[in-house]
Amino acid sequence: MAAGGDHGSPDSYRSPLASRYASPEMCFVFSDRYKFRTWRQLWLWLAEAEQTLGLPITDEQIQEMKSNLENIDFKMAAEEEKRLRHDVMAHVHTFGHCCPKAAGIIHLGATSCYVGDNTDLIILRNALDLLLPKLARVISRLADFAKERASLPTLGFTHFQPAQLTTVGKRCCLWIQDLCMDLQNLKRVRDDLRFRGVKGTTGTQASFLQLFEGDDHKVEQLDKMVTEKAGFKRAFIITGQTYTRKVDIEVLSVLASLGASVHKICTDIRLLANLKEMEEPFEKQQIGSSAMPYKRNPMRSERCCSLARHLMTLVMDPLQTASVQWFERTLDDSANRRICLAEAFLTADTILNTLQNISEGLVVYPKVIERRIRQELPFMATENIIMAMVKAGGSRQDCHEKIRVLSQQAASVVKQEGGDNDLIERIQVDAYFSPIHSQLDHLLDPSSFTGRASQQVQRFLEEEVYPLLKPYESVMKVKAELCL
């Protein structure tokens, strides 16, 4: 049975990233139509530049190519590739079939990587351009969430054990800070992308030097003109047959890092959902379990974690691919890159769409948070109580021993009897502590235990987050809708 299948058929496997999760716009960027249309555009740009620099290419040939950029006979191309065992030459023939007058000058002087690699770089750039505003929107939604809850005390956790208090907004800023680093890295790697350009079979530009009869300047002009037509500021000066596969490492490393950030955020949300302090959106008709109707599973956060793990592992592909590119190139890269580049971007696209949807509907339960604080705060307040007693004339050592005994009794009630923490009640009825009984409410005010959390939130948002989001103001209103 021949390899390949009808990918629109229910009898043929289709990647869930495309069929179930990723956005239509990201799927289109990695589609065959987008790819092969870009090949034709690159052939047109090459012909236009070659004509401008004096090669015998007519206006009629150029116009014929322009008129057929979208006229792609995919069936013919597939048949040609089956016959020739070469995808680029299959599309040269297919393009030439609908451009008979231009057929002889299509791909003039070029090698397969002229269309293959340059198209990949265009796709990487455009895919990054799709991700950047999506990530900015996630940051914006979380920034709104953090600002609104900047002063809401909550129990902090280290080692997932109760620690000092923080605020809900401050905790959210930990998430935002990681995503801001990801946004900066995505922008950097996007701006650092260079075009492969017009380089020939081993990167020496020998074929173009021959076409222009040894004119170095025209060869350099050709490279520059096509690079500018493709919208790049610069091209690699040095290439082998391909652009260095280190570029793929750079791009997928940034995406993998984004995956790590999203995994951490969504894990926190899942843990908070278990504590009943916070939940992701839950639709009115949504079913959490087929057997347990009360369940409210954090399905979206779980999906993000599941896909983020996949995204983090994909960076190993370009690392290994770059390491086995012998001399000017081997074909070890080809099949692998067809999979890992598309999957990385479709996965990143999915987790950003999902995280935006989550961040637009996060639900906080202040009463649950308050109750958990009441359970733990008495123990945390013991040092403040000791200091207040010393100020009232008591002995630190005597007070410490009193607190120690009462704390152990209260802990026994919590752990052995399943009761509430009654340390404060014990202190309130103990005559030894009568000098500070009137101060206990103040000493137990949760806001006095959150330090500068709310001020940190305000400063972080104003100095770091809002300036970073400013270039994306025009796209901030787009909502994230999930079908599944």
Rank of each mutant, 00 (worst) to 15 (best):
S261R: 04
M389C: 08
M26D: 07
G394N: 09
L131I: 10
V138L: 13
L406T: 07
K367P: 06
L209R: 10
F236P: 06
L423I: 05
D420A: 04
E370M: 15
K66F: 12
V226N: 01
S151Y: 09
D215A: 14
S31C: 07
P133G: 14
G361C: 15
T330K: 05
V198K: 03
A90G: 14
R245V: 01
Q397Y: 04
V465N: 03
S306M: 05
G169N: 04
Q409T: 09
G5Y: 15
L179Q: 04
E60D: 14
R309H: 12
D191Y: 08
G96V: 10
V168H: 10
D117Q: 00
D117N: 01
K391L: 04
V475Y: 07
L252K: 05
R33Y: 09
S112F: 00
D268K: 00
L209S: 10
F74L: 13
P446Q: 01
D144E: 14
E60C: 11
R37L: 14
R37F: 11
L152F: 07
A291R: 02
E81R: 00
E70G: 12
D59W: 08
S323D: 08
E401H: 14
M299W: 00
T167W: 00
D182A: 01
I237S: 09
G259W: 04
W175G: 02
P378Q: 04
K264E: 01
R188C: 06
M292Q: 05
M316L: 11
S438I: 13
Q397R: 05
I386W: 06
T239L: 08
R20E: 00
R374F: 06
C340M: 13
A102L: 05
L469T: 14
M181R: 05
S412P: 06
L46S: 02
E283K: 13
R234T: 12
R194D: 03
A77N: 11
V115F: 01
I57V: 11
F36D: 12
G200T: 06
L69M: 11
K66S: 14
Q409I: 12
L346R: 05
W43P: 02
R171W: 00
V390Y: 07
L130V: 13
C399Y: 01
N126L: 07
G240C: 01
L124S: 11
K229L: 11
A344R: 03
R372W: 03
S412Q: 14
C266F: 05
I72C: 08
K246T: 02
G169C: 00
M380V: 05
E280V: 01
P162V: 05
D317S: 09
V478F: 14
A342R: 06
G156D: 00
N118Q: 02
D73C: 08
S207H: 00
I436L: 07
K470R: 12
P56T: 12
P293S: 05
T166N: 09
